[in-house]
Nucleic acid binder design. Sequence first.
DNA 1: CGCTGTCCTGACTGTCCGGTCAGTCAGGCT
DNA 2: AGCCTGACTGACCGGACAGTCAGGACAGCG
Lengths: 197, 197
Amino acid sequence: MNASAPVSERVAVILESACRVVARDGAHGLRMAAVAEEAGVSKALVHYYFSTRRELLRHAFAFSEERLAAAVEELLAPLPDAAARLEHALLASLDPEPPWSEQRALWNEVWSTMRFDDLLRPLVEDAYRAWVERIVGLVRGGAEDGSLAPPADPVATGWRLAAAADGIDSMLYLGLLDRRRARELVRGAIERELPRG
Amino acid sequence: MNASAPVSERVAVILESACRVVARDGAHGLRMAAVAEEAGVSKALVHYYFSTRRELLRHAFAFSEERLAAAVEELLAPLPDAAARLEHALLASLDPEPPWSEQRALWNEVWSTMRFDDLLRPLVEDAYRAWVERIVGLVRGGAEDGSLAPPADPVATGWRLAAAADGIDSMLYLGLLDRRRARELVRGAIERELPRG
DNA sequence: CGCTGTCCTGACTGTCCGGTCAGTCAGGCT
DNA sequence: AGCCTGACTGACCGGACAGTCAGGACAGCG
């Protein structure tokens, strides 16, 4: 199975099933048999396309990440300015609906697995970095289109905002706060970093 | 095995071994045989004290968390004011030395396991909440002893700071930034939330 | 028609590992 | 002495599960 190969219908079904299983049972709970059943195919077919369990997990993550990037694009594109895009981007992961919720679960699971999979780790790393870079880009964009006050250090601001959103996400996941409060905190972080001018 | 029972020497050795194994092999990679070997006892003895693998994991986490709380106390007590304590508390988890590093690994692992262990989850929840409350307390303390500017909403400030520190921690863990940069970002977050003056 | 390659399956295997159990041993009590 | 108990062990069991394999179905093509 090649990472950049065009996915056939069957392969897509298997990858989607794998994503659902991971979101439901965890990365460690990913069973080839469960994926096969979910996809309505034999276990051996899953092995036919993905020789090992690890490989399947990697491809499932990449597949899901790719779909999510498209969803983010779709979410942000119609928004009027960088300020709105920044806010929506930071709030998106708090959304209890798929694909956000499922991706959140996938991340949680993959996070603990990557330590033991040298090929998975760079995937996670790149995805996270791309996410932070997107935030930094929006901070810069806000300064350019005038929708946000230009910060002294846009890069540091972007990283801190991404970090804060991530931490709040964890708190929400753990049930330490409710969604409303989580959104408030994220908005508060934006205001602190980028006071309306 | 009772949660609040005083731990005998043997039990402590087993729990320490379990912590090391989890930090090394992951929560999912926690093998009774590995713990037994590490502790220099038979596998059956581990089962004698902790009837199931899950129970061992829970006790190991609680044990470690307790030791960490003591270490935090020891770290913060000699500091002159709340401002210094807040900074050190938020920076502590970035420390590459035990017990911080080991606890960090333990958290990472337990995080993904708790979803499937209803008894573990509240332990993690309480530990996290206690941590955030401690930060909030330090923010308040800083306003009282005059070492920090009093924020409009100390609770929100505390939560945001804890969240940001947590997120930066994740980024460091993933290797997206180096320790120096991580410390800078944490300090920057404190300045943003609690400007000197 | 037969040949070949792709897609696909059921049945099987080897291994790993949590948990059990029968039993040993040291030490305290009567 | 005999008896009991708590700590401890080696050997074993049974289930779960990744990965294999021999082969079937079927299309395209000569």
